[in-house]
């Protein structure tokens, strides 16, 4: 291991922090490649399609009528900040997939946004209580700048997988790179394995 001359670090590594991450504390940095869109909930929709028995589109009212689900915990951004004690409210992706019914061959999903952003995930990373579509954060509505009115939340992976302004999930039998993944970011993005870039 190569040491940096004179660097000792200003604190012990917090065991809750994945390698190379720091605690952003009260800040919630914003990172996105696009200008912030303003998406009205009147004509907002969320669609699950691709390799499913029954493609489904929910309106804002319809998705809110589904059983509510909450995530409380940490989020980790590939740009090296993490945040603890976050509370997100929305619906579990499991609930959405119960209605759409994935076909046996479905193994991956492409999440897409109202802005055209995409990100790819293994199906097993968005099932089993690991992923949500959320519209509330820390007791208030999710702001535009953080992906409101609704974003995907996959908190066990780096946060670019939690697509802002999410508009749907397409189930696929193969993996395809999404927006950042085509630009060199990792296909999986596990922060505990430091899967930041392709080849990590």
């Amino acid at each position: 291991m190569a040491f940096t001359r004179g660097f000792t670090g200003r604190r012990q590594q917090d065991p809750r922090l994945p390698p190379g991450q720091y605690d952003a504390g009260a800040d919630w940095p914003v990172l996105s490649a696009e200008s912030t869109p303003s998406i009205k909930t009147d004509n907002w929709t969320f669609t699950v399609d691709g390799l499913v028995e029954s493609p489904v589109t929910w309106t804002w009212e319809q998705i809110h009528a589904l059983p509510a689900a909450r995530y409380e915990g940490a989020i980790h951004c590939v740009t090296s900040w993490s945040k603890f004690g976050m509370r997100f409210d929305g619906v579990s992706v499991d609930t959405l997939l119960e209605t759409a019914r994935p076909m046996p061959g479905a193994a991956y999903v492409m999440a897409r946004s109202h802005t055209g952003y995409t990100t790819n995930l293994p199906l097993e990373d968005v099932t089993g209580g690991k992923a949500w579509v959320v519209w509330g954060v820390n007791g208030g509505p999710l702001p535009d700048i953080h992906g409101g009115p609704a974003r995907l939340l996959v908190p066990h992976l780096y946060f670019w997988k939690s697509a802002k302004w999410v508009s749907g999930l397409q189930l696929m039998d193969h993996d395809e790179p999404g927006f950042w993944e085509r630009n060199g970011y990792h296909d999986h993005g596990d922060p505990w394995l430091e899967q930041r870039y392709q080849g990590d």
């Binding site: 291991m1 040491f3 940096t4 670090g9 740009t79 090296s80």
Partner: peptide, 15 residues
Amino acid sequence: IVRLTAPDGYRAQRS
């Protein structure tokens, strides 16, 4: 990205 490494293995990196 710049990465700093302390003798005890502690690391910090920023872009």
